[in-house]
Simulated scan of single mutants.
Amino acid sequence: MNQRNETLDFRLLNEFQRDFPLISAPYGLLAQQLEVDELEVLEALRRLHEEGAISRVGAVFSPRRIGASVLAALAVPAEQLDAIADEVSAHAEVNHNYEREHDWNLWFVATAPSQPHLDRLMEHIASESACPLIRLPLLEEFHIDLGFDLSSHARRRTAKVMTRPAELPESAWQLEADEQRLMAVLQNGLPLELHPYALLAERAALDEARVLQLLESWLARGLVKRFGVIVRHHELGWTANAMCVWDVSDAQVSAIGERLARQAGVTLCYRRARDLPTWRYNLYCMIHGRERTKVEARVAEINRDLGLHAYPHEVLFSLRRYKQRGARYVDLGGVACV
């Protein structure tokens, strides 16, 4: 690949992860900003998608604003891990599924249309796998998926650290029929065609103006956290990925979580419910790196700088990725994707 293409690829990956244009021909606007042809932009994005560097161009929906979700883990015998991971990944509600270094070795995220639906899924997975299961629902988000700076691997400093309380009701957002149809066709991403919103509108039985209006409303009201290029860190060289967990007193966890979210290198940060007596930890962050030793050094620095070494903590590195895709909320019929 020549230097021109490498530069174009990097800028597409790094500069358009959020605030994607909500206009009829968004790729044309990207082309103007990049000083290239519109078809060149589309060709590059299609290639990056085929190569796995991006999962899609589209929306990242906010946790707990629609449906219900949970981080869960199984303690799986090593000889059964691949088979049980495949069983877990086969569920449409499961969007992320990883092996991590720990006795609790299979970690997955599941999203469902309602809490009762999610509870039934968890019971089914526990029964199907015949393995111990812990459930760790989100309570507060301090920093979740606000973009990933590939040049310096530091969170974009223009992103505002937000805290969302545990009391946010499950029914905070009730989707209208046209919203359900749009969400269904958007879940796989924005079409890589000249007029993508018109194509979404056709598939959702809407007009283009309504599609753009709904997307603007979703962003303004927080249903969508960001809209843009969704990169895949592992394929881009960030293969040393660690989930760091601490047991912090409930009285202190919110203040510490906000400070942790602002640390360089922290790509995700949130508070989750404990699952006692089995799992004591309530504060989490993710650190993505190219080298394990550098990630370990960064964790040590954060523990020192924030005084977190005083709290029980563990670092769980990812070993294998069994499944990674965007959450599914509805199908093309506008009903639960199950």
Score class of each variant (00 low, 15 high):
S152R: 13
E140V: 13
S89L: 05
H117F: 12
L81M: 11
P116C: 12
L106T: 14
E193L: 14
A110R: 06
S89H: 02
L136A: 06
L186G: 02
Q174A: 12
L175V: 11
D119A: 06
E128D: 13
E170P: 04
L138Y: 12
M162P: 00
T111C: 05
L194T: 14
L139T: 14
I84L: 13
M183R: 09
Q187L: 03
E87S: 06
L168E: 03
W173P: 04
N105M: 06
M183Q: 08
E99G: 01
L182V: 12
W173G: 04
A110C: 07
I125S: 01
S152F: 07
E167W: 13
L175G: 10
H91L: 06
L186Y: 05
A90F: 05
M183W: 00
S114K: 03
N188F: 01
L186D: 02
K160A: 13
W104L: 11
D145K: 05
A90R: 07
Q174S: 11
P165A: 10
S171P: 02
H153M: 01
D82C: 01
R100H: 06
E123D: 14
N105Q: 10
V88W: 04
P137W: 06
H102P: 02
L121S: 08
R157H: 06
L175T: 09
P169I: 05
A177K: 12
V88E: 01
E170Y: 00
S151C: 07
L136R: 10
E87I: 08
A184E: 12
E79V: 14
A83V: 08
A154D: 04
E170S: 13
L139I: 06
S89E: 07
M183Y: 06
R181N: 10
L139P: 00
N188M: 09
E141C: 08
R155Y: 12
E93Q: 15
Q80Y: 13
Q180K: 15
S114E: 10
L150M: 04
T163N: 09
P132M: 11
D119F: 00
A159C: 08
P165K: 01
A172Q: 10
Y98P: 10
E170C: 02
A154E: 11
L150K: 05
A166V: 07
E101R: 12
L81D: 02
F148K: 01
A177H: 08
S151A: 15
I125E: 02
L194Q: 09
P191L: 00
I144G: 00
Q187T: 14
T163S: 14
W104F: 13
D82Y: 00
N97F: 04
A83S: 08
E123N: 12
L150N: 04
C131L: 05
L146P: 02
E193V: 15
E141M: 10
L121C: 09
V161A: 09
L175W: 11
E87M: 14
E123R: 13
A92L: 03
P165Y: 04
E128A: 15
Q115R: 13
E101K: 09
E93S: 03
